[in-house]
């Protein structure tokens, strides 16, 4: 089990099944939170490993999303590109409890450090 502070990002009903919504991070990379048709939730940095397409706007299939720009398929579980394409988008651990979504607070900082904003 992961330990750390969980950040409440609101009720699950805010995201329609089969779609995603976005969560800008001040000074960091935007996060996309996905709700699959089967009722699972995943959070990823909203950047395709190919050319940074906004994954939140792609068509969600099973537990993958097709990038809206050039149709790469990205796994929502691992962030990895499927098929012959190579690349990986960072994922952010999240959980759902009593109808609310939580992101692992510590993970939200990750992309910022990568960009060199944080010390």
């Amino acid at each position: 089990m992961l330990t750390g502070k969980w950040l409440d990002i609101g009720p699950t009903t805010q995201i329609q099944p089969g779609s995603a919504r976005t969560l800008p991070v001040a000074g960091g990379d935007e996060i996309a939170v996905f709700h699959t048709m089967r009722g699972e939730f995943y959070a990823l940095v909203n950047k395709c490993p190919h050319k940074a397409g906004p994954l939140s706007e792609g068509i969600v299939h099973g537990d993958t999303v097709s990038c809206p720009l050039h149709n790469w398929r990205i796994s929502l579980r691992t962030g990895e590109a499927q098929g012959d394409d190579k690349g990986c988008t960072p994922t952010i651990p999240m959980k759902v409890d009593a109808g609310r979504m939580f992101l692992l607070r510590e993970a939200v900082i990750g992309p910022v450090a990568q960009n060199g904003v944080a010390a």
């Binding site: 990002i9 609101g10 805010q14 919504r21 969560l23 991070v25 939200v108 900082i109 910022v112």
Partner: peptide, 15 residues
């Protein structure tokens, strides 16, 4: 609205 609006704005931990 959900297709256009962000869920929320997050401040990273260091801030």
């Amino acid at each position: 609205r959900d297709l256009h609006a962000h869920l929320a704005q997050v401040r990273p931990l260091y801030l």
